[in-house]
Amino acid sequence: MGTLSSGVEFTGAVGTYTFYRKQGSDKIFVRQRRNGGRKKKKKELSERVQETVTEFSLCASTSKAIRWAIRDIKHLADYNFTPKLTGLCRHPQKLDPVGKRGERSVLISQHPSYFAGFNLNKNHLFDSIIRHPLQYSIDPVAGIARVELPELQQGVSLFLPWPVPQFRVIMALGLAADQLFDASGKKDSFSPGTTVATTGWLSSTEQHKGQTFELSLPMPAKRPKDRGISYVLSIGIEMEITVLRGSGGIRKAGAGKIVDLVAVGG
């Protein structure tokens, strides 16, 4: 993979080369597509490799479930966080007390601390923008989360990384199910909804009183009976940034994170 410093202002494929931009960068990158040999089928791989492939697949499914639960704020990420989240899933997977290697499940509900506090950003973290501790609670029985935003004032509790006129805070509550090993290869079909609460658009030059929000997400009637389920609370701060590149315009920017996960009892 290479980068182009000047002379190319388009993206797309030309011959065997692909020109593209990465999220969070104005540079144009180029890579050459390779025509490799025939891809081996899973059954043609060694037993050890098959075990690794199976477990990685479960980690990918776990990452997908969590991304679905935080889909209302994931547009605030400044990089592709999916590989990092997928890799993080390996840690709780290794703690599966039942499955042997190649058959270990990812039990989100038993190890929520691995995912709590996960940041969607590299350049500007949510906690570096809103610096007062966030107060919250999650009631997994009632399916209700309460979030208390602190008083927000630029330079005191709020440190916006860009000179923007306004911003807003987005809170979301979703659900994620444990990903269990299934010898039949059955895919996860649990895709519940989410609930969202937002502040209005707030002026960056004014002081704003603290606010309390309540998010309610009842457990769906159709839910996996054999898997643990966790409520996932996430939060983000969103700004509108003027884009100078090309024809200009406005894009969404900001920061977000997973606040906490709480398992549903029963």
Rank of each mutant, 00 (worst) to 15 (best):
F10C: 03
F10M: 06
T11F: 02
T11N: 02
A13S: 11
G15A: 05
Y17S: 12
Y17R: 14
F19A: 01
F19C: 05
F19H: 02
K22T: 08
K22L: 08
G24I: 07
S25N: 11
D26G: 06
K27Y: 09
I28M: 00
F29M: 09
R31G: 04
R31A: 07
R31T: 10
R31V: 02
Q32L: 06
R33W: 06
R34P: 14
N35I: 11
N35E: 14
G36P: 01
R38V: 14
R38E: 08
R38D: 05
K41Q: 10
K42T: 15
K42H: 06
E44H: 11
E44V: 05
E44G: 03
L45A: 00
S46R: 08
E47A: 13
E47C: 04
Q50R: 07
E51L: 12
E51M: 12
E51Q: 15
E51Y: 13
T52W: 09
T52K: 08
V53N: 14
E55L: 04
E55C: 00
F56L: 12
S57C: 05
L58H: 12
L58P: 01
A60K: 11
A60R: 08
A60I: 05
A60L: 09
S63V: 02
I66Y: 05
I66L: 12
R67H: 04
R67I: 10
R67E: 05
W68N: 11
I70A: 04
I70D: 01
R71L: 10
R71I: 05
D72P: 00
H75R: 14
H75K: 06
H75Q: 05
H75E: 12
L76D: 06
D78S: 10
Y79K: 06
T82D: 04
P83F: 02
P83E: 00
T86K: 06
T86C: 03
T86A: 11
L88R: 09
L88T: 08
C89G: 04
R90Y: 11
R90A: 12
R90E: 08
H91Q: 13
H91G: 08
K94Y: 07
L95K: 13
D96V: 11
V98M: 12
V98A: 10
G99F: 03
G102S: 02
E103V: 01
L107V: 03
Q110I: 07
H111W: 11
S113A: 12
S113Q: 13
Y114P: 02
F115M: 06
A116Y: 05
G117N: 04
L120A: 11
L120Y: 06
N121L: 01
N121M: 00
N121Y: 02
K122D: 15
H124R: 14
H124K: 14
H124Y: 13
L125M: 09
L125K: 05
L125P: 07
D127L: 01
S128T: 14
